[in-house]
Amino acid sequence: MKINKINKWFRNILKASSLTAVMFVFQACYGTAYDDYKEDVFISGKVISKSTQQPIQGIKVSPKSESVFAITDKNGEFGFYSPRYRVTDYFDTLSAVREGYPLLFEDIDSTENGAYADTLLYINVQYQHKVEVNMQLEDAQ
């Protein structure tokens, strides 16, 4: 047991050192590289209708400009992984500024599951691995 502690201590020292950390990076002959990315977040939640309070299926939920998204299921639930980032958007005049992670809710199935207005929400995802967002969508005009 004592030897094992020394072995672990030796390993941690090597791993922490910039000179020897490279020894821990490997890839099996026929495998991928490691995934050691730390900057992503799981965004999940539920979308319901503001007027009926019922879950809405078929809403596309995505960050405005990234190639990740999810479509709500029959329970109105969604979930996807995304890199964490923060934008500052200016609307019309400099006085209308929104900051944060831009989460866009789009009704992409026309009137099949009702018709709802697209909504853009800015949320805070900094330093978080999981964020839950429950959204109520207005009926389309």
Partner: peptide
């Protein structure tokens, strides 16, 4: 767990790319 795939790329298109990234894929060969 983290995850990745090894693929011949034959079926990999924009739609698959988006689906897999959204599902937390972090590595690919």
């Amino acid at each position: 767990f983290r995850w990745g795939i090894v693929t011949n790329g034959y079926l990999y298109d924009n739609q698959k790319h988006t689906e897999l990234l959204s599902s937390g894929m972090g590595a690919i060969t």
